[in-house]
Structure formats: C-alpha cells, structure tokens
Design a protein around this nucleic acid. Structure first.
Lengths: 232, 232
DNA sequence: GCATCCAATAATGTATACGTTAATCGATGC
DNA sequence: GCATCGATTAACGTATACATTATTGGATGC
C-alpha cells in the first residue's frame, strides 16, 4: 500500500475558506455579536474574516437558507430578528418534530450505552440546579440533550430540521433564560422522558415530551408578552 | 407623488442570474433531466444556462441545502439519489409535519373561500380518475393539494419544511405512479380531510391525514421492496 | 424655499483571472 | 511486466476586476 497523497494532508484536506467564514459568521450570530436586525455588508465581513467577497457570499446563502439572516438585494444582509409570531412558528414546529424523534428513538429500544450522551446531559442539568443555580451550564446541557436526541432518532432529515429551528431560537432562549423561573420542572421532565425511552414505553415518551415542549412554549410566550418584547 | 425609479423597471427589478440558474437547475432535477446520481460540472451548467460559474455556484449551494444535490469538493455536484432508507426518512418527516399543518389549519376554522384551492385540487383528483384515468393530472392535483395545505396552515417554517421534503420525493413519486394501484382510496381520503377541516373537527382532520400519510408511505415502501429498487 | 434632476459614490451582481489540487497517463526503474 | 514517479491537465476555490444599480448630496430652476 502506498500513499495517494502527501502525508501532511492525509485525511485533512485544507479547509475551505467558505466553511470557516460560514462557521465564524454563524457563531457571531448565535453569540449575539451580530445582533438581530443588524445590517452587514459583504465587504465588512470579508475584511473582518480576512477573506474575499466570494466565500462570504456563499456563506450568506447558506445562512439565509437556515433562517439566520436575510439577503437584501443590493443592501447586504440583515440578521434575522424573531417576532412573537416567529416564536409561535418555531414552537409549533418543535412540538411536531421532537415528539416524533423521541418516538422513533424509543421504538428502537436503545440500551443505556446508546443513550449515554442523554444521560450525561440529564445529570449535568440536575447538577447545574443543585446548590447555586448555574443557568448558563443548565442551558448548555439542555441544548446538548435536545440536539443529541435529534441525532439519535435515526432520521437525519428530521434531526437537521430540529437543529435548524433550534438554532433560530437560540438567542431568544438565552435572552429569556434569566427571566423565567428556575427550570426545575423542565429538568424533571427530561429525566422522565429518558426513563420512558429506557423502559421502551414509546407512547409515554412521546406524550411527556410533547407536554414538555408545550409547557416550554407557553412559558416563553408568557414571558414575551409580559415584557412586551417585539423582536429578539 | 413622483417616481423613484424609471417606469420600465417599477416593481420588477432585473431578475438576478443566480435566481434563474437556480430555478432552471431545480426544474431540470425535478423533471429528471438531470437524473439521480448524475455528476455535473460547474462549467457545464454555466455553459448550458449561459451564465458564469459564480451564479451557478450559488445555485448549487442553495440546492445542496434543499437536499437535491451534493457538492463534491473538486468534482462538481452529484444529483441526489434516494435510497429506500431516504424514503423512510421522508415519510417519517411528512407523517410528523403534515398532520400538524392540517391541525393548525382546521383550528383556524377557515371558510370555503379560504379553502378554494384545496377544493379545486380535490375536484381535479376526482375528475382525473373519472372515466379514463389520467395519472399525470392526478399527481399534479395531489401535489397542489398538499402544497396548498402547507401554505394555508399559517406557519411559514412548517410550510417550507414540508415543501422541501416533498420536492425531494417528487421524482420517486412520479416514478412509482404507474406501479401503484389506482389512487381511488387516496382521493377519497383527501376529500374526507377537507370535509373534516370544513366541519372544524381538528382531531378527525389530523387523524385522517395521519392515516393517509401512513398508508401512502406503506404503499410506496411495498412497491420499492417488490421491485427491488435501490436508488431513485 | 421646495421639489427635481444630475452627478458622484458605494455596494452589489457577475465575469474572469489566478492559484491549487487531484486525477490521468506516460515514462522510467527495478 | 508491474509499480511508482512526474508532468500535464482539468476542475475547483478564491480573488479581483468590471458592470449595474441604488442612494445621497448638491445644484438648479421655478
């Protein structure tokens, strides 16, 4: 056996500028460094990320399709801002897709090994609330739980769709994190879903999860209304 | 009041090359002119559509995110081919999203005027089967019904997701159209869903639709297995 | 003083040029 | 005769140049 390419690049082809621009832009948006409603020019991003406009434009196209920004012809892009109506849409989608994902996963009768990432996330959520609450840590564990659930369901399309709307709502979730009551109930529900999956109880897993999502949506809607938030 | 731009271009800014390339490429793929598995070069498309590589690349990115093709670095693109497993994924997604769309629509208590496009499609499906069956016409009406249902549900994200997977499955549906029994039952189910929506019976609408989708998925799966189809 | 027009400018949309990578094919050495 | 190496080539990935369009500010005419 011989090498078909130089050792230096084996398995690690040079990363494309397009990909790094995409990743960094997305990170900036999710981290609220480019806040919702912000107008950005191609040349700004190109200069900031040390690339030419070509890869920046390709990254814009991808991010637009993911709903994180909007290309305004002749005017660069505008970072998407979520209205209360957008939040309703997102939660309706999640209430449809996520219970399905849970159902598919539970139906496969996975063992504890397969569910290790979920167990870890559950533990982390509980740990984040024991003693002095650490909301950032809790949110990270919550996110990990849901994304891993999507990944484990055995349907790549379903998983991609869940992650896409989850990303769209990321900033809103972070923003409202400190405005909502301590997520004790939410943490319990995660554990209950996990138990139902392990028990192979498809219907129970689905219904708990659906209720969990519905409660979360209502909670968020209440907060948004109470604070009169229009865009986030 | 005066004109802010020449009359000739009022409301109709010059269409971007990117958009026409995207639309024509997508049409080609859905029409099976670029068959699944086909490898295409940027320069081929650029030459065929009389554009430069830049807009072609942007169209590729959009179509990749829609799942209609895959960008193979340094090797152009490959038109996506659906495996039986992909079909399973698509039907799982549709079985999750479409009943939700129906539920949302029915809950709004729409009147006959609002549902006109659905009524028209139902009529067209029945007409296509009365007398000498016209499968092409039936399929077009079926597609119109489902896409309009998605549009009417009041959730743009949900609608976009439904249309996306529907597009992915378009060729497969066309291909199996003549292999399946006459869609008499399917046509009746559409009418039943429509009646349930008009009656404002949310739960009945959802359950009929879910059953409809499930039966359709099983039917397709059976056909795929029976004919030993691996990619389409 | 106000509206209109024009010119300058800035940013996008598209084309093209350049550099890099990977594959192919022939030559060479064992 | 086979494997390996190298050169050629073809295609992509990126940068840049050019064309197009929309906006803005100032000048002009009424």
């Amino acid at each position: 056996m011989y090498l078909s390419q130089p050792l230096a690049t084996m398995g690690s082809r040079a990363p494309r500028s397009t990909d790094t621009v995409y990743a960094r832009l997305k990170q900036h948006i999710l981290d609220n460094r480019y806040p919702p409603g912000a107008q950005i020019l191609e040349s700004e991003v190109a200069a900031a990320l040390n690339a030419s406009r070509t890869p920046v434009r390709e990254a814009f196209v991808r991010l637009q399709q993911e709903g994180l920004l909007e290309i305004v012809p002749r005017h660069g892009v505008r970072i998407s801002a979520l209205s209360p109506d957008d939040m309703r849409e997102i939660y309706e989608v999640l209430m449809s897709l996520e219970p399905t994902a849970v159902e598919l996963l539970a139906a496969r009768r996975p063992d504890r090994t397969e569910l290790e990432s979920l167990i870890t996330s559950c533990d982390a959520m509980e740990a984040a609330l024991a003693g002095e609450p650490d909301l950032q840590a809790w949110a990270a564990a919550d996110e990990a739980f849901h994304l891993n659930l999507a990944r484990l369901c055995g349907n790549k399309r379903l998983a991609a769709m869940i992650m896409q709307v989850w990303d769209q709502a990321h900033r809103a979730r972070m923003f409202t994190l400190s405005l909502r009551p301590l997520p004790v109930r939410s943490t319990e529900e995660h554990r209950a879903v996990l138990d139902a999956i392990l028990a192979g109880d498809v219907e129970r897993a689905r219904s708990i999860y659906h209720a969990h999502r519905k409660r979360g949506g209502n909670e968020l809607t209440t907060i948004i209304e109470k604070h009169g938030i229009q865009r986030l």
